[in-house]
Design a protein around this nucleic acid. Structure first.
Lengths: 241, 241
DNA sequence: GAGACTACATGCCTGCACAGATCGGCGTCA
DNA sequence: TGACGCCGATCTGTGCAGGCATGTAGTCTC
């Protein structure tokens, strides 16, 4: 299925910038890209505009298209997240996202217990039961997908659209952890109980208990992987004016 | 200072979509926009591409440019946040951002205490002292700007680029609260002490205390404003497939 | 009801004029 | 001689105008 030329141009340039093939500070002229990709100016210009809106490049007259340093990238842009997870920045990206999860999900569980509509509660209980079943039978692939849906459901049930929007990158995080072999061989019985506890507490509208159960899950998550990327350098950008 | 035609086109279309002037489901043809803004196709096309990357519209052959419902917008896109804060969605946007702050900032303080370079610690102590001075002398304007810089500094000192990137919207949140008169007349003496506590704990590399001090600040923040938008409807989008 | 047909809006390409930023040469002055 | 400032040449993105190609939606036919 051939994607549009525009998408391919965005992908080509963006992924090369994010994986470091094109270092920050490099300047490119649009004409080069035209011949490199064998596409016309309009395609290049539209792609550059999209990448500029993600903070990857800035284009100025007489100089060309300048690649910006990682500190200027929008780390919440879905494209940036995808490219980082696909390449060298994978470790740092997974760490950032995991830390974000640890911060956000307990709050999401608390809000969900206060505001979640009934159908979300039912679905959460349903998912928790299925997770228990898949976990005990050792069906790791199903468990992963259920886990993803469970956490996405909690985020959506919080009624906070920013939380809900984190579902996709968090799903990628979980998949990434699995690919890297950072998930336990067999889901812990405690983890199953904690997920059940989150679903129960949200359904019973008990915010405090929902938060605490989710905090247990997150604490375990953090412990399992906090050491893995400890050596990766952290970025400390100066807060801009 | 006349901005480029591209920026104006993005602004024009985007702000009208976000403030609801153009309802979801509406279809627009590019030719209309050309005559409406008196610009050429390339400008419109590039603007549409940028808005599409933010999830505001999709453009399909034979049908035109379809405006997407709010659930499809990227709530972390800086442009979307700005437009929402400027218009009708202001309440819901401030609530979302505040909930995000409450979740993220304690974690950021904890991480900062573990990883912050020395220069960040010094600057934090400096800011806390200035805040105390401005707060006690009743200089609310200075206090607001110092408050913004303080929280931005903690987020940056966490070494998590996603946290650091939340500094701008959070600054807007604080300014928005002030404009709406939701800030206390005089900063509480306790709040000053808590900020000092955060700076001290981070400088002393005491993650637990840093988190707890920040939690106190956030709890107060939440109490001050949680009731204000309680009546605003929450969005519960279905998690996508 | 299923398949072919047609109209239409976007996708993509190309040539042109303009604006603004950079760079180099030139002259002046200390 | 060397440093500074002015000014024009040049390069590149910005924007415009028009054209053909392509895929889809709606219609029309059988």
């Amino acid at each position: 299925m051939p994607k549009s030329l525009h998408q391919r141009a965005v992908e080509h340039l963006g992924s090369r910038i994010v994986d470091g093939s094109i270092p920050a500070g490099e300047v490119i002229v649009a004409a080069e890209l035209e011949s490199e990709l064998s596409v016309s100016r309009s395609v290049i210009r539209e792609a550059v505009r999209v990448l500029a809106s993600a903070g990857l490049v800035v284009s100025t007259k007489r100089v060309g298209i300048r690649v910006l340093p990682p500190a200027d990238w929008n780390p919440f842009d879905p494209l940036v997240i995808r490219w980082r997870l696909a390449g060298d920045g994978q470790g740092a990206q997974l760490r950032s996202l995991t830390e974000l999860r640890v911060a956000v999900e307990p709050m999401a569980a608390e809000l969900a217990a206060e505001h979640a509509p009934a159908e979300f509660c039912g679905e959460l209980l349903n998912l928790a039961a299925q997770m228990r079943h898949a976990g005990r039978s050792g069906d790791l692939a199903s468990f992963l997908e259920l886990d993803i849906r469970f956490h996405a459901m909690v985020l959506a049930a919080s009624g906070n659209e920013m939380f809900a929007n984190l579902a996709n990158p968090i799903a990628e995080t979980l998949r990434g952890r699995t690919e890297l072999g950072l998930m336990p061989e067999h889901p812990h019985e405690e983890a199953l109980a904690w997920h059940q506890g989150v679903a129960d507490a949200i359904s019973a509208h008990e915010p405090h208990r929902a938060r605490e159960s989710m905090e247990l899950i997150m604490r375990r998550t953090n412990e399992e992987i906090c050491g893995v990327w400890a050596h990766k350098p952290r970025l400390f950008p100066q807060p801009r004016a």
